[in-house]
């Protein structure tokens, strides 16, 4: 019985793989220039005969058009990192007829596109096109409210809204945040610390296999974790009980590192860990090489 169940399971897995492959092939074929030429109205010798104007051909043409649009969208998303789209608010009493302007922020982390972050804007102020943040999926550690007040103020004062600026600044903050998380993950890897599912914020970061163990004189690093919401502070722990706090700037530059051991502040350890490093990447490099 068990073998039969296994077989069924295997076959089902194969069916789903084949199905997804079929989808990929379909989209590739549809997007190919030669297919489009083939389907387009008969102007060249290559296209199908004109009398073959069946509903099937119409359907294929429509599908090809959709695929083309989707490819273009993907291209913009991949290259621009910041795209707009339109959406509809299903609430029957939504402002402005439920029209929504969506802002899509792409984030790349560990050579992968993460699920984009969205900011959905509406226009609740009658008689003016001023935007307001309606819903969003930005993590709580990004001060979206402050940014919105700065760049998308309500139409009361003389302050003007600047959506482009808002979007750019917001994207900068999001990307910086992910880079800081990535830097912490790199540090952990460089120090030979494995994957640890502790902080929700760090979960988005992929951590690979254990890196080379970095032994430092006077003990080994046993824990490196982001210590605050924005991942600007990193707490570092040594095997012999020393604990340190590293403060990063917005762009990963090292602002401060304090290590406290049993006998008070341990400046030796600070020098050992940092050396000449001025940014967090330098520290990672030091750890991996040393």
């Amino acid at each position: 019985m068990a073998s039969l169940d296994d077989e069924i399971e295997n076959l089902q897995a194969r069916v789903s793989t084949l199905k997804s492959q079929l989808q990929i092939q379909t989209s590739t074929l549809l997007a190919a220039p030669s297919t489009r030429k083939l389907l387009s109205p008969p102007s060249s010798a290559l296209s199908l005969p004109a009398d073959d104007n069946t509903p099937l051909r119409q359907k294929l043409l429509a599908r090809s058009g959709i695929q083309h649009a989707h490819n273009q969208q993907c291209l913009y998303r991949a290259c621009a990192g910041l795209t707009l789209f339109r959406a509809h608010d299903p609430d029957p009493s939504a402002v402005d007829g439920g029209a929504i302007l969506g802002l899509r922020i792409e984030v790349v982390s560990r050579a992968k596109f993460l699920r984009p972050y969205y900011v959905l804007l509406n226009r609740p102020y009658p008689g003016s096109g001023h935007l307001r943040v309606h819903r969003h999926t930005i993590p709580a550690c990004i001060p979206l409210a402050g940014l919105a007040v700065r760049w998308l103020p309500p139409p009361k004062g003389e302050a003007k809204q600047d959506l482009a600026r808002f979007a750019r600044v917001l994207r900068l903050e999001v990307v910086r945040y992910h880079h800081r998380l990535g830097a912490v993950a790199d540090l952990r890897k460089a120090a030979g610390l494995g994957r640890k599912k502790s902080r929700a914020a760090a979960e988005a970061e992929e951590q690979d296999v254990l890196g080379a163990r970095a032994e430092l004189a006077g003990g080994k690093l046993v824990d490196i974790t982001p210590a605050d919401a924005e991942a600007k502070q990193i707490s570092v722990e040594w095997a012999d009980g020393r604990a340190g706090r590293l403060v990063m700037g917005d762009d990963g530059e090292i602002v401060k590192l304090v290590v406290v051991g049993e006998g008070g502040r341990d400046r030796e350890a600070v020098r050992e860990l940092l050396g000449e490093a001025t940014t967090i990447e330098d520290v990672v490099r030091r750890l991996t090489s040393g």
Binding site: S27, N71, C74, R115, P116, Y118, I138, A201
Partner: peptide, 27 residues
């Protein structure tokens, strides 16, 4: 701290982490 803070109800489709939406996927 997650994405779901301000995207509840039907807006959750924008916050669902399990959904893959890579721009490199042309399907």
């Amino acid at each position: 701290s997650q994405r779901t803070n301000n995207a509840a109800g039907g807006w959750g489709v924008y916050a669902d982490e399990n959904k893959k939406e890579s721009p490199l996927d042309t399907v």
